[in-house]
Amino acid sequence: MKGNVVTQTLSQSVLLVDDSPDIHLLVPARLGSERLTIHHAYNAVDGLSDAKTHQPDLILLDLDMPDIDGLTLCAQLKADKDLVGIPVIFLTGILDVATKVKAFELGAIDYVTKPFDGVELKARVRSALRTKRYHDMLSTKAQIDALTGLWNRRYLDDHLGAEVSALRRRPGALSLLMVDIDHFKHINDTYGHPVGDSVIQEVAEEIKQMSRKSDIVCRYGGEEFAVILKDTDSADALIIAERLREKIFMRDFSDGRKKLRVTVSIGIASSDQLAPDMVLPGAIIEAADRTLYRAKTEGRNRICFQAHSAQGITSGLSWH
Rank of each mutant, 00 (worst) to 15 (best):
T92F: 01
V203I: 09
F90P: 00
A44I: 02
L73Y: 08
E224K: 09
S234I: 07
K114W: 04
S265K: 04
F116G: 10
L160V: 07
A235W: 07
N152E: 07
A287S: 11
R300K: 12
R302K: 13
S127M: 10
D19G: 11
D110L: 08
V84F: 06
R169G: 04
T297P: 12
V112M: 05
I303K: 11
P56H: 08
G256N: 00
R168I: 04
E205P: 01
F253K: 00
V45Q: 14
L260N: 05
H320D: 11
S165I: 13
K247Y: 06
H159W: 15
R261S: 12
D189E: 02
D180S: 08
G107P: 02
P56C: 03
E163T: 11
T291N: 15
R245K: 03
T53V: 14
K185E: 01
L156Q: 05
V5A: 06
G3I: 08
G85I: 01
L274N: 07
N43Q: 06
L83G: 00
S127C: 07
D233V: 12
G32D: 09
I68V: 13
P56G: 02
V45W: 11
E202S: 10
M1P: 11
G267E: 06
V227G: 04
Q143V: 10
D69K: 11
D136W: 08
V217I: 14
L147I: 01
Q201C: 08
V84C: 09
S214V: 15
S49E: 14
R133Q: 13
R219H: 13
E163C: 09
